[in-house]
Design a protein around this nucleic acid. Structure first.
Lengths: 172, 172
DNA sequence: TCTTTTACGAAATATGTTTTCAATTTGTGT
DNA sequence: ACACAAATTGAAAACATATTTCGTAAAAGA
C-alpha cells in the first residue's frame, strides 16, 4: 500500500535514485524504456516492505489499469536481475519482493500472529556462519536465516493484526 | 532411491520404529490402516535424504503401480502432522520431506553445484539466535537457516553431480 | 519517417498441489 | 461372517502461482 498520509512514505529522493539506477540497467542491457515499466518501478519503490505480486499489481492498476500482470512479473524479474530488488519466499507460497533493504545480507523475523516481517543483521552471525562453513568444508554463496515466532509486544502485534485484517477487507 | 546394495540402507529396526509410531498416530486419530499408506510409509522410511514427492512416487509405484500421487500427497501430509516427518523447501519450487533427521532442529547446507543437502547443528548458534530474538523483542517458535553455496571438495562434488545426472536419465 | 527490435496484454500453458467424486475398503457392531 | 457407516482411494478436475505464446503496439536508431 502506498502511504498517502505521508507518515511512512518512502523518501522521494530514494525513489528517484532507484529509478535512475534501473534506467541505467535498462540501457546497459540494450532494453527499451517504456511507460509501463516506469509506472511499475515507481509504484514499487514507493512501497515499503516485502511486497507480493498481487499487492503490487493492485497499486499498479491504480496508476494504470491497463497494465497486465504479465508485465508486472516481467518487470519484477528485471528488477531482480538488476539486483535492485531481492526475491524472498517465506513459505506462504508467494514470492515477495524487497527493494528497500537497508543492509545487504540481512535476515528476517516473521511474526506468525500479525504477519509482520522485520529485518535484522549481525556481524557476529556472519562470522559464525563462516566458521560453520569452514568446519563443514563448504563455500557460502548466500544464506538465509528466518526466525518464525511472535512479537513480544503483544499490544503492537494485535494492533498490526487488526490493521492487516482491515486492509484485507479493502478498508482503505 | 532405495539403496539396493545395502551399503547405505536405512536400518530395518529404524524403519520398523517409524512404522509403529505412524500406526499409533493413525489409531490415535481414529483413522484407518490401509495397504497404500503402509506401502508409502515403508518406502519413504527406507529412503534417505530430502525426498521430493516425485522421487517418492517413483519408488512407491515400484512397490505398487496402482497407487496414485494424490494418495502420496495425502500420506505425506499425515506424516508431517504426525511429526515423524518435516517438510522443507529449498527454493527449487518443490516440497521435500525429511524423515531421518538425526537432530531435532538442524540447519542445512545446500550445494548449488551437485545438489547435495547436508545437515548441521550447533548449540552456540541456537543460543545466538535466542539473543538476537531477545534484543529484537521477539519470541522464536522455530527457525530456518540455510547456507547455499558449494562443496569445497570439488572432486566429491563433481562425482555427486555426475551421479545425479545419470540418475535423472534413469540410470539405475 | 521508415525499419527493426523490443515490449505489451490477453490468453494459453506449465507446474506443483489440492480437491472432488464415485467406487472401494476398513473398522465396528451384530 | 455380514451389514453398515465412515474413511480412503484413484483418476480427473480444479486450483494457485508463475511463465510463455502470439498478434499488436510502441520505442530506438537510420
Amino acid at each position: 500500500m502506498i502511504d498517502a498520509s505521508g507518515k511512512n512514505a518512502v523518501d522521494p529522493k530514494v525513489i528517484k535514485e532507484k529509478e535512475v539506477a534501473f534506467a541505467q540497467f535498462i540501457q546497459d542491457r540494450g532494453l527499451k524504456t517504456t511507460k509501463q515499466r516506469n509506472t511499475i518501478i515507481s509504484v514499487f519503490f514507493a512501497m515499503r516492505g516485502h511486497i507480493s505480486v498481487e499487492e503490487l499489481l493492485v497499486e499498479v492498476k491504480r496508476a494504470n489499469p491497463k497494465i497486465g500482470y504479465a508485465t508486472v512479473y516481467r518487470t519484477l524479474h528485471l528488477l531482480v536481475e538488476s539486483e535492485l530488488v531481492q526475491e524472498r519466499r517465506f513459505g506462504d507460497g508467494l514470492a515477495r519482493y524487497e527493494g528497500h533493504s537497508g543492509v545487504e545480507h540481512h535476515n528476517h523475523m516473521i511474526c506468525l500472529e500479525c504477519g509482520n516481517i522485520s529485518e535484522f543483521s549481525n556481524p557476529s552471525l556472519v562470522k559464525f556462519q563462516g566458521q560453520l562453513a569452514e568446519e563443514n568444508n563448504f563455500k557460502i554463496y548466500r544464506h538465509r536465516l528466518e526466525l518464525y515466532g511472535a512479537c513480544k509486544d503483544e499490544k503492537a502485534c494485535q494492533l498490526r493484526k487488526k490493521k492487516k485484517a482491515a486492509h484485507a477487507h479493502g478498508g482503505g
